[in-house]
Each structure stands twice: as C-alpha cells, then as structure tokens.
Amino acid sequence: MTQTDDKPAVQIASLNKWYGAFHVLKEVNLTIPSGSRVVICGPSGSGKSTLIRCLNGLEAYQQGTVTLGTIELGANARETVLARRQTGMVFQSFNLFPHLTVLSNCTLALRRVLRMPRNEAESLARHFLEKVRIPEQATKYPAQLSGGQQQRVAIARALCMNPRLMLFDEPTSALDPEMVKEVLDVMTGLAHEGMTMICVTHEMGFAREVADQVVFMDQGSIVEQASPVAFFSTPNHPRARSFLNTLLH
C-alpha cells in the first residue's frame, strides 16, 4: 500500500448498506486522518459493528466508497487484499484459534500470508506478546488464559501483521470488570505510539482520555461527530444526550 501522510487513513463516502429490505447504514460519511483515534458509540443495533466490518471487507456494501489510504476497497482485487492485510481487527469475543498455542496464533498469518521463516515469525510474535505484557504465556493454549489475557493475545496477533489501521469492536464488552483495564491500557499504549485506531466501545473513560473524535451512531446514521470534550459536555443531538444519560446511570 502506498500511503502518503496527507491522505486520510480512512475515507468513507456516502456509504449505504442494506440487509434485504433493512437499511442498516444510511449515507455514512467519515474521514479519519492518519494517526487519529476515533471512538464510535451508540445504542445497540445502530450499525456500529456493521460499519467497522465494512472497513476490512468482512461485510459487503451496496453503495458508496471506502478508501484506506490510497486504495479504494473493491476497486482492484489485488490492492484490496493488500489493504485488508494492513488492517488489524480485534473482536468482542477474541476469536483466537483454540487449537493453536498463543505463539502459533500470532505466527500463522506471518508464515502463511507473508511467508516469513519460522524463526523470524516467532521472534516478531514474542516481541508483540511482550508489548501486550504476556510473553510468559506463549506456549499456552487460549483456553488456559483469562479473558483479558486472550484479548491481549488477539491484539498482539493483529499487530504482528504490521497494520496501518486497527479496528476494535467492543474489545472489552465480554470481559469481567477487573480485566477491562489491562486491555484498555494496551490500547492506550498503542494510541500513544500513533496507531490509527477506530474503536467501537462504551468505555467513556477511554474515549475521553484517548479519542480525538467521538462518533455517535443511531439507526444506521452518524448523528453526531465531535471532540470528546464537546461530546461529553454538550452533546447536540437529543438521542446522544439520552444515550449518555443511560451510560452514566
């Protein structure tokens, strides 16, 4: 991917998606500069997951364009594959490969997709496991780890592919409260290193501290987009106000 810094990391233009007759994304426009951190929030069913899944090809859409750097998704098959490869994704349910060790989870794509030799792949994987603070779990299987540890492995697994963009879909929603912080800490660290991040999350503390834009979705549309300070102090849209109220109480 040839990405110049003046190009935004992600540009979503007039995106529309339907599930059958159900209009799930309505005229979504969003520009995300390189290095920025966007938090997407909104009520359940508002289309947050669907939107970020459109950014790495997990969902198809019927209208509009998604451009990652200089590559428009779907325009050229080879470039689309490259763009996806440089987009990491972390899921609510971790989705680690249960039959592989932590280390093999991290090296699988390095070896199969990038054709990296085993030694090189393993040392890279260990580097990122250290970064998410679980180097000692490398030989364990996912089922032997706590939820917070599993999610950190999932982050390390995505980082191994050297992504330019990281997508997070409610990465802490499936975690016990005491494990949320360890995952958010890793994400905060990434943000401070300048990673471009799009996070669907209801962790408003994280949004306040880390995000430079908060995007509020409702019924398939972006109804408010603001800096965290503005969003939390003076939300414009009545639905954003009531959403914040339910979160706080």
Binding site: L58, G88, F91, N95, L108, A109, V113, R157, M161
Partner: peptide, 13 residues
C-alpha cells in the same frame, strides 16, 4: 463459531 473464519479473513489468510 463464525468468528473463527472472520478472524482468519481479518488476518489476510
């Protein structure tokens, strides 16, 4: 679970 194939695709496999 569906998430397994999704994780594989997201990694570029």
């Amino acid at each position: 679970p569906n998430g397994q194939a999704e994780a594989a695709k997201a990694l570029g496999l």
